[in-house]
Design a protein around this nucleic acid. Structure first.
Length: 419
DNA sequence: TCTGGGGTCCTAGGACCC
DNA sequence: TCTGGGGTCCTAGGACCC
């Protein structure tokens, strides 16, 4: 059996942990630049604020209904996530952290336990230890544990936050209840096609002939169908190094100057290089993209990307920044108002076994230098040491008007309790 | 005026090899 | 007039996830 544990309205719940006065109040967390709603408390959902809602379109509702709005505080959410995962890891030796707020737990060999109770004990321990409410779904396959989790959450009043699918009756009842577009692994495109052929529920999907599923949804769809029928096709995934690493941002305003973009692009490359070093990889290729604001049809549109193959594998901030700026020179055009850019590094090789090039190689001194930089930044705070090509004047700043304190990761932000 | 960011996997088809 | 068989690798595009 697998358990799928996920945190309820995770980002909103994190904000609530340190603001208990917000219990029962509507909360919305915004994306970078305070752009879109990326998390909502149940109360905010009830007000009809959809996922991804542009903040400016809902300002009036926020105001009128007294919604508490927060800028995304990833330092806080990342730390709270660690705490939750730590607690969960005490319930099984075998666990896969699936996302910032979700984990699959293997319950192999736990058959002697009352699994419903076991799920409830997870809820109790995690909420007590971290303040974050969770839901637990338990079933014989990963896909079914996702279904069970939905039920646990949706009917929390009855389930207490934990639900087990351990019989065919329960499985079929659950699948008949679940709309096909809500199945894990069925997105918009597949959902539409399925609805078109009269498949409305997860159960209908399991009744489709395998050839149809194979033809229209490939082996991924077939695997999913079997999982929903109760035949396990997916194991716990072991953590692997990333195959691509990206740093991309929308800008707070439109950029028209090469110099402005250059500073940002350089910073994105530096950020990628830090992530590369963290997983001890070098990259062999780098992609850069820039584009104007797609939502503005009154402005001239321009969008391009370019991939450059590097002459040698590297994770040096200096070298990657150079390559990114070279790439920018190739695709930058005057006369456009740029709104977003990003650097994506690809085609990794491990640091230990680099293929050297006869004619040009990564500067051997950079390894030591980067180590020193990483160490300083780790101790003194991010971005203490930067490249001169980066935005030294700090002319840009992400819009974050409603940022909460970093309660759990910054000494200055620790709460004081008056007794 | 204001609209996020970061990932994965699979497949078909073209280019190439012997 | 007749014109094989069996592979691999790469890439773009499509689908999905949180």
């Amino acid at each position: 059996m697998f358990a799928l544990v996920d945190c309820n309205n995770f980002y909103a719940s994190c904000e609530r942990v340190f603001r208990p006065d917000l219990n029962g109040k509507p909360i919305v967390v915004l994306s970078n630049n305070d752009g879109c709603a990326i998390a909502r408390s149940n109360e905010a959902k009830a007000l009809g604020i959809p996922m991804g809602a542009p903040a400016y379109q809902f300002e009036k509702i926020f105001e009128e209904k007294g919604v508490f709005v927060f800028s995304a505080n990833f330092a806080l959410y990342g730390d709270m996530s660690h705490r939750v995962m730590d607690m969960l890891s005490t319930f099984t030796p075998d666990m896969e952290i699936y996302s910032i707020d979700e984990a699959f737990l293997s319950l192999k060999g736990f058959d002697h336990l009352n699994l419903q109770q076991y799920g409830l004990s997870m809820c109790k321990k995690v909420v007590r230890g971290t303040g974050i409410p969770i839901s637990v779904g338990i079933a014989p396959t990963k896909a079914l544990s996702k279904v069970a989790n939905r039920i646990a959450k949706k009917f929390a009043a009855r389930t207490g936050g934990s639900y087990v699918i351990d019989s065919d009756e329960k499985r079929i009842k659950a699948l008949k209840w679940l709309a096909v577009e809500d199945v894990w692994g069925i997105g918009r495109q597949h959902a539409k096609r399925l609805r078109d052929v009269g498949v409305n529920t997860a159960f209908d999907f399991t009744q489709l002939p395998e050839e149809w599923v194979r033809r229209n949804m490939a082996v991924v769809g077939l695997r999913l169908q079997k999982e929903l029928k109760g035949e396990p096709m997916l194991e716990l995934d072991v953590p692997q190094n990333k195959k691509n690493i990206a740093t991309t941002r929308s800008f707070d305003s439109n950029y028209t100057q090469f110099e402005q973009l250059k500073e940002r692009v350089s910073s994105f490359a530096v950020s990628c290089s830090e992530k590369l070093r963290k997983q001890k990889s070098c990259c062999n290729a780098l992609m850069l993209f820039i584009h104007t604001n797609r939502h503005r049809d009154d402005l001239a549109q321009y969008s391009r990307n370019i991939v450059i193959q590097l002459p040698f594998p590297t994770n040096s901030a200096i070298e990657l920044s150079d390559f990114a700026v070279q790439a920018l020179k190739q695709i930058f055009r005057e006369g456009y108002a740029y709104k977003k850019a990003g650097v994506i590094v690809m085609d990794f090789t491990p640091v230990q076994n680099q293929q050297l090039n006869l004619f040009s190689n990564s500067n051997p001194k950079h390894g030591k230098l980067m180590q020193a930089v990483d160490q300083i930044n780790r101790l003194q705070g991010p971005q203490k040491v930067r490249l001169a090509t980066q935005d030294l004047k700090r002319i840009w700043k992400m819009k974050q008007e409603k940022l909460s304190p970093r309660y759990s990761t910054n000494l200055r932000d620790i709460i004081t309790i008056k007794i």
